[in-house]
Amino acid sequence: MAETATAQRTVRFIITRQDKPDAAPYTEEFDIPYRSNMNVISALMEIQRNPVKADGTKTTPVVWESNCLEEVCGACSMVINGKPRQACSALIDKLEQPIRIAPMSTFPVVRDLVINRERMFQALKRVKAWIPIDGTYDLGPGPRMAETKRQWAYELSKCMTCGVCLEACPNVNDRSSFIGPAPISQVRLFNAHPTGEMNADERLDALMEDGGIEGCGNSQNCVRSCPKGIPLTTSIAAINRDTTKRLFRKWLTN
């Protein structure tokens, strides 16, 4: 059989890179051999194996973070063709080419596509996004949760702290102290829990301080961007209602 010489199909990537946290960003282009069903992570792995740019010169491998590869850990958030999303669920077949990849620069960039999401974890600590049950004796079983409530609360529990909602929010930036949509939704989740509810006011108070819930400007980009489809704007409005009630209760009862 005569071999037919077909050119290897490639996919062009334009990647925004940065060598150090304080270094200036620059872009590099790569042509990655196409394979069926590939995603952005497998393309980045290809660059890691063979770090050669589109013009044929060698470069350092592009650095990124990823973990679960099934859109539940939140580690591989990056800006793909202008939209913040998870690289693992970004299928090449469904992306416009050339594919532009950049770090979510709302967060401090560590190197290339690796960002530091520390502020999100600090925010969860600030709003006490947990249920305090530790003690010196067995507290026994907690109150039961209604099934109807559990169903919507479960949706909120899907948050993986990926940071996509903060990247999409026009009010999360270095001129504003807004905490961001994700932790507000977590306050709603933990305040909905029958045991967590016992500390509801502490979490609301944490959002009624500088850089709390008031920073929301209702652009509603968060709910359009959340990879887990969490009703973030409903959570924000529900917590707006709870903080408003708390405000008047504090004024009128103290």
Binding site: P231, T234, A237, I239, D242, T243, T244
Partner: peptide, 10 residues
């Protein structure tokens, strides 16, 4: 209406 928690759902 949103910021004071009057209209909550979509």
């Amino acid at each position: 209406l949103v910021s004071w928690g009057i209209t909550v759902g979509p």
